[in-house]
């Protein structure tokens, strides 16, 4: 009887090497290259310093007990209760009303004054937190009734001095902030992800199971 030819140890090791190479290759593709390919990057039309604008010592009128109240100063509600979202130029010009006399001395403000205020042109901001069209979200229900801080969903955005590049998912067109900055989708903070499950999870946790009915958040 002839013995079946068994691969040598060397062949085993060699095969293992290829396995590991493939394995690592995939990890690199999946964790490093994939996110780079998946998201497109686009700078914002100009910078906006949230930290500066939310400082009551520097900016008149930014007052309020809670952080939410300070945010609402610009990101407020219309009379019918709908959320204003990113402010229109008219909100900016409540303070930055004269292109000739900037309030500070940064080149950013100068560019803003010349490029938008003087020309009375809206700033084409790219919204980090825009949900798709099928989603209905009521800010007033969460902020006023639910007394949620803006941070719960928007994180430290209000403390940033520099606007990061806007990243959009090439496939879905969604902002990266919906899935979260971590490609793993794992979250450690409530604001790390804004997917449907995250909304539902919070509703359940807060004892608002009834708000997980489909039509509460879909339109």
């Amino acid at each position: 009887m002839e013995k079946t030819k068994r691969p040598s140890l060397r062949a085993w090791l060699e095969g293992g090497g290829f396995f590991i190479a493939g394995f690592i290759g995939s990890l690199v593709i999946g964790w490093v290259i994939f996110p780079m390919v998946l998201y497109s990057k686009q700078p914002q039309p100009m910078n906006f310093n949230h930290a500066l604008h939310l400082n009551p010592e520097k900016v008149d009128g930014i007052e309020g007990e809670t952080e939410a109240e300070r945010c609402l100063h610009c990101h407020g509600f219309y009379d019918d209760g709908t959320f204003k979202g990113i402010p229109k130029l008219s909100t900016c010009t409540e303070c930055h009303d004269n292109p000739e006399s900037p309030l500070g001395n940064t080149p950013e403000e100068k560019a803003f004054m010349d490029g938008y205020v003087a020309k009375d042109q809206e700033i084409p901001w790219l919204a980090y937190y825009k949900q798709p069209d099928c989603v209905y979200f009521s800010h007033i229900a969460h902020v006023k009734n639910g007394k949620l801080d803006c941070m719960v969903c928007h994180g430290e955005h209000g403390k940033t001095a520099v606007l990061l590049d806007y990243e959009a998912n090439r496939l879905t067109g969604y902002s990266k902030n919906i899935w979260g900055k971590r490609i793993s989708g794992l979250k450690t903070n409530t604001w790390d992800r804004m997917k449907m499950d995250d909304c539902a999870e919070c509703h359940s946790k807060m004892g608002h199971e009834e708000n997980n009915a489909c039509f509460v958040c879909h339109k």
Binding site: F19, G22, F23, G25, S26, L27, G30
Partner: peptide, 10 residues
Amino acid sequence: SLMVGGVAGM
């Protein structure tokens, strides 16, 4: 081996 490694890693 390479492929299996790749798939497993993926």
